[in-house]
Write a protein that binds this DNA or RNA. Structure first.
Lengths: 142, 142
DNA sequence: GTAATTTCCTTTCCGGGTGAAAGTAGAACA
DNA sequence: TGTTCTACTTTCACCCGGAAAGGAAATTAC
């Protein structure tokens, strides 16, 4: 499969970077049969096209005591509730991700807190905007 | 809040790296009042503690035609279905994330496909293991 | 009270990665 | 055949990152 806007080589470079973004351009080049500089140029192009949005790290919240990880579906009954809710979620540091969704519910979000009390406190706040359904992470499989 | 195992300086370094892992140790040091080498040592320590698991990129699947993004809750009725399902999900490239969950449902997963047909095909396969509830991403807010 | 140890930092130094610039090969097209 | 464009390689200079050595402060033992 050759994706939109990029060729197979770009796609392989992208996959390598997703796995390990510290790979040197030279090492990537050895994989895809290019010089490091050519790889650099392709990466720069993908950044300009905003295919690559930035560089970040994979990290483990559990290791620093962020022990609760919840998937929450939010149900809002009135139109007026949307903006206040969005502001609440955007500004709350426990909300790691937030999406508008189709299907059951209005929003889906990923929430992380240090412990159960903090999650309960979060849910109490959330009740001010609408109803919710919570699923707790009981183990990452993939 | 000072998290488990690491001090405030480590935490600030971690946050900076999450935002942009290409920041030089020197620049991070300027933020947290350390030399680049001291920052490097702290980062190395966090890697050894597996707080930092690796370096990766933030990228936009939409830009290369990965147009469908779905949050799927899976319901399995029999014990025997779990292992086959896990193998299916682990090996399927459309499954971006997979968690065991508490609450309604047995598993939660994030699925990305190029288009609606591919998602439908995926769901047809999924039916071989159990039932599901699908929510489509209609817009990322955070 | 003082010496030894540990921890964490800074300074110094070297290998190697990255980006810019210049040059080259091949495809598209009139 | 000549022109242009694109994508690559080569070369070069700069800066980053890790290793090693040295120093300051806190902790522990006697």
């Amino acid at each position: 499969m050759t994706p939109y806007l990029i060729d197979d080589t770009d796609y392989r470079i992208l996959q390598l970077l997703i796995e390990d973004s510290t790979l040197s351009h030279k090492d990537i080049g050895a994989e895809v049969h290019l010089t490091g500089q050519a790889v650099g140029a392709r990466i720069r192009r993908m950044r300009e096209l905003e295919i690559i949005e930035g560089y970040t790290i994979r990290w483990n919240p559990l290791r620093i005591g962020q022990n609760m990880h919840a998937f929450i579906t939010v149900f809002l009954s009135t139109n007026a509730a949307h903006l206040p809710f969005q502001n609440f979620a955007k500004n709350h540091k426990s909300v790691a991700e937030l999406y508008r969704i189709s299907g059951e519910g209005c929003y889906w979000m990923r929430v992380r807190t240090v412990n159960q009390e903090a999650l309960t406190a979060f849910l109490d706040e959330l009740l001010g905007y609408g109803n919710y359904r919570v699923n707790l992470d009981m183990g990452k499989i993939k």
